[in-house]
Amino acid sequence: MTREVTTPELEPGTFLITSGMDDRARASCKALPRADGNAHPIFAFIAALGGMGTSIAALCELCGSSIEAGPVLASTRIRWLAPMTVDSEYGVEARIVDTVAKQSRRFGKAIHARIRFTVLHGETECAEVDIHMILPERESDDER
């Protein structure tokens, strides 16, 4: 069942990728050192999620779930459109594309939410990120 989301456009936000952040991320995931000023490519995703103007907890609530229910990332599609350098701030726009209630073997009744993010540096689109999240529905949540 597809749900109507009353506020599909999420608040815009920003994300600053610092060189220290990139250094630590690279060290923790055993990546090659930064060579050309560009952040590790995973920062397209990190900036999208970390920079949206709505918190993940609020996003879960908007989708009819809660962060305590243990939402999981099911899939993602990332398009890298322009280099993303460190020590630069990026704008993030996001919208909920749709939410669908499904029965899941693992989670029981769960909400499948698809969210699209655009990561910008000024007017330049640097990345487009789509995510599909599975959010266990709140036990007390009535069907809407």
Partner: peptide
């Protein structure tokens, strides 16, 4: 390091 990644992602998921 999961703390660091979760913080960057703004992800307070307790898992």
């Amino acid at each position: 390091d999961m703390h660091f990644w979760a913080e960057m992602l703004g992800d307070p998921n307790p898992i």
